[in-house]
Amino acid sequence: MNGHVLKNYDQELNKLRYRLVRMGSLVQQQIEMSVSSILNSNIELAKQVMELEEKVDKLDLKIDKQCIRIIALHQPVARDLRLILAALQIDIYFEIIGDYTTEMIDDVARTIFTSEIINKTKIKEMSEHVIKMIGKVLDSFVDENVNLALDILKIEEIVNILFKDNFNNLLSLMKADSSNIDSYAILLDVNRLLDLISKSAKTIAQELIYIYEPSISKHNDIEDLSIHDIFAEKTNE
């Protein structure tokens, strides 16, 4: 699609996109670092996650301001309007993901995991999937690619299965091995948080789909009658 006749408008929108991508990549980093921090009990990494969180919060505010600015000055319609609305939503979800990651590293000093314990679960695999989701969110957003967003929905299903597996697995492990129950409880928490992150990523993906292909609905259960069809019905009468 061509750029706007008004170049300034394009610049404003690009700034918004840039900030969203930057926020996404920070959040991606956060997830990576927090998972690695909790699994390796790395307090240094945990501190870095906290530092990143500050940056993410600042970006959140900046993106909000940028959206309001564009709405006020350029009265966006159609695609641009949807971009702004999506940006506002994505922004919120990224912020929430950031919060999840800080929540994840709360217990970093409590226990030390052995690789044996970790290998018994599929936490690492799950975290890789979640990181991949965030990566795809950014790619999809930058490339305006709906297919990547649709991929995210598929990955979310995988993550969901993994979450259930892990949950059951950890429950049985806790029953069997009560000496390491602390560790298992923390892993259960991490498992839950990762699942929440993936669900947020899924919501973002839906937002992206809404931006680029509005005909595909967020909530498939509600039947969305195309407005074109309504008008066509009327004229046929």
């Binding site: 061509n2 706007h4 006749v5 408008y9 319609v77 159609a78 695609r79 949807r82 074109h228 008008f231």
Partner: peptide, 25 residues
């Protein structure tokens, strides 16, 4: 030609969208 709401949020035709978002004129 469509309902105004549709035209201004989700136009069917790409040309329409380009025009109303100010991408050509």
């Amino acid at each position: 030609m469509d309902k105004t709401t549709t035209i201004f949020t989700n136009p069917y035709n790409k040309k329409t969208e380009e025009y109303i978002t100010g991408r050509f004129g």
